[in-house]
Design a protein around this nucleic acid. Sequence first.
RNA 1: GUGGGUAUAGCUCAGCUGGUAGAGCGCCGCCUUGUGGUGGCGGAUGUCGUGGGUUCAAGUCCCGUUACUCACCCCA
Length: 445
Amino acid sequence: MAKIAPLSGFPELLPEQRVVEREIIASLSRTFELHGFANIETRVVEPIDRLAKGGEIDKEIYVLQRLAADADSKAELGMHFDLTVPFRATSPEHAGKLEFPFRRFQIQPAWRGERPQEGRYRQFTQADIDIVGRDTLGFHHDVEVVRVMVEALGALPLPPLSFRVNNRKLIRGFYRGLGIADVTTAIKVIDKLDKLPAETVAAQLVEQAGATPEQAEQCLRLATIRVADTSFVEKVRALGVEDEVLDTGPEELAAVIAGCASATSARVTVEANLRIARGLDYYTGTVLEVFMAGYERLKSVGGGGRYDALASDGKTTYPGVGVSFGVSRTLIPLIADGVLDGSRKVPSAVLVAVTDEADRDASTAVATALRKSGVACELSADAAKFGKQIRAAERRGIPFVWFTRADGSHRVKDIRSGEQVEADPSTRTPPAADLRPQVIKKENQ
RNA sequence: GUGGGUAUAGCUCAGCUGGUAGAGCGCCGCCUUGUGGUGGCGGAUGUCGUGGGUUCAAGUCCCGUUACUCACCCCA
């Protein structure tokens, strides 16, 4: 794997790599906007007590403090570790000026002080969509938000992705109907099924969640259900467990699976996967994780779900549902592996050659004409031999070199094909595909 | 936070039991007379991460340190 981070956990992209990130962010933004999501950017810091919730993640919060702060003063500001928690926490703050249900997308970096690894960074960019309601939020938004992310990711040049969806009401109801003592712990234990062997998980269900061996066995049976359609409903019913919430859970999950079906493709699949639980405790209904083929080692590249009561100002609660996509987690490994790259290091589509330093103005005039028609271009840095100027263009990935001759005539050369033709700077424009840097995807890497 | 590994040219790395640094790629020049890519010939580049120790002699051995990296934990 190529090295991208000179400062561990704080990756920096080179210009052509940044092309990949920018184009992908632009594509995501377009899809989100097509669905009416407004963009916001929130402050990077929050008062620590709004971020810290007593969980594991608290230890990873970076704090922000003046260098000249008193030695005994306590830091008050922490940098956000994701985009959802601060968004939900601050929604009540702007509630008077927002229209509910409020739908927004947000693409920003977040910070976590953990040990960096492939796909895990101390600074990373996330793309989030959420819909937040006031007091109530219709369930159909669960379907909507998942579907929007399916469409958004389906439009990207990535390896195949799979959305694995579950519903907390389904598993909670099932566990409760079974009579398991500690349902919350049982969910957390089941979540480890991908890492630990089934027997170990069963043993932990008995030890930690107060389940009987028979109940643990039933939990595992539920967790192995995994289908790409709504047939899971029958499979759950066949296990013969009864509980009042166990009716709505499967219904909701079935609605999400059915609602996304027409947006799936070879590139993005959506399945009901009853072992998906998610470690975070604020999810109340829909939960999902996204995985990328060939990159299972990264764990999920996205995730989200429904949370009914994360934000509240005392009188009003703000239920929401959202999905986030790990832009850095996904792209940096793909770039490092050579699967994705930018088509060039510079925005310029044309390098205007300089014949003679005394004649640089002639080249400037050509560049000005090209820019008037929206063609990004730059002048050669010096009036070196044409061979060198062409080579300079080639190294930057600039597809065209423009030559101006003493008699005022012009020629433009496509340096990929070597083809060179007469051209007029005021009317000539490169093919659309060459106007902007593109994301190049290499297969079989 | 816990436990491993690595650190030599711009990049990827070699350097055996200590004897005053090397390859490939890249870069620069020439063949090529202002139009690159292939080919041939030639050339430049290193405080061998850093501080100390052992030794006549350290890239090589020992200790410290820093950085990077992998796994666990957790997650995007």
